[in-house]
Design a protein around this nucleic acid. Structure first.
Lengths: 141, 141
DNA sequence: AGCAATAATTGTTGTCGTCAATAGTTGTTG
DNA sequence: CAACAACTATTGACGACAACAATTATTGCT
């Protein structure tokens, strides 16, 4: 019988852990963690999102979003604005500082990924990326 | 700027989480978790391993191994034996019950992985597996 | 004999995910 | 239009989990 190392699902699990660790150590100096970074980058694409949208799109619990946005507000990278349509909702938007931060750390983030994918050549990375994306998109969460 | 979803490292992180969750829910009924299962399957290949070997090979902290082996012993799936060479070390071996458990759950485990990789055809799964294995083997931990 | 290194263990800390509960607001419908 | 159900953000609690530091017993070195 072969070890669990041979199973693709387990490989994904192990690599996911390692990837998360790499990202977190890279973000450490800025006081953020991976989840903050994910929120920031999502905000950069959407230009304003309700917290429940962040929750749904990123797969984090609504209660987790609260703390993340709190932290980002404290750092001045994002802010909550009242929704004109619904007074229950808050619209979270990226600030100018947040945008600057993203631009400054963009290449550093890519370097982390490049480091992880070191043993693969560019074509293989492209292949891997495509396969992973197909799996993710199959059942979004 | 594209969202973090587009980054391969982040995709790995997200899929790793999902894969771990799937495995854990599958193992739930047996009272085990993913890490227990990894230990069991490693023991099945090696027929006896020191705890520090489990730690090194599986990438878990030595202190984590203690609890895992404790649980496996309580369930009767593994046991600690004194090492004849070194009284500090314990040799962890799979019991007959542990072997039976592995045989019974083997196909269920494969089904979990198949479920996760549903959108990929067999050739693509092989490709993905090969790429992931290359990354894992590059810097084992 | 003395001292550094090692194996297993314990304890601590911070993060994470999930779930329950609440306050305020909106939508529905009887 | 009044009562009630559903929704939004928030708070709080709990267990699972990973990463580290510290401890004990043992071994190897010299």
């Amino acid at each position: 019988m072969r070890g669990l190392h041979a199973d693709t699902g387990y490989l994904l699990y192990r690599l996911g852990l390692r990837s998360g660790q790499l990202f977190n150590t890279f973000l450490q100096e800025s006081g953020l963690r991976l989840r903050h970074y994910a929120v920031l980058r999502f905000l950069a694409t959407s230009d304003g999102a309700l917290q429940r949208e962040l929750s749904a799109q990123l797969g984090y619990d609504p209660s987790a979003i609260v703390g993340l946005v709190d932290d980002l507000e404290k750092l001045g990278f994002a802010e909550r604005r009242p929704s004109p349509d619904d007074r229950r909702s808050r619209i979270v938007v990226l600030t100018a500082e947040g945008r600057t931060f993203l631009r400054d750390t963009d290449e550093a983030g890519l370097r982390v990924t490049n480091d992880l994918l070191d043993p693969l050549d560019p074509a293989e990375r492209e292949t891997l990326h495509g396969l992973l994306q197909r799996i993710v998109e199959d059942r979004p969460s």
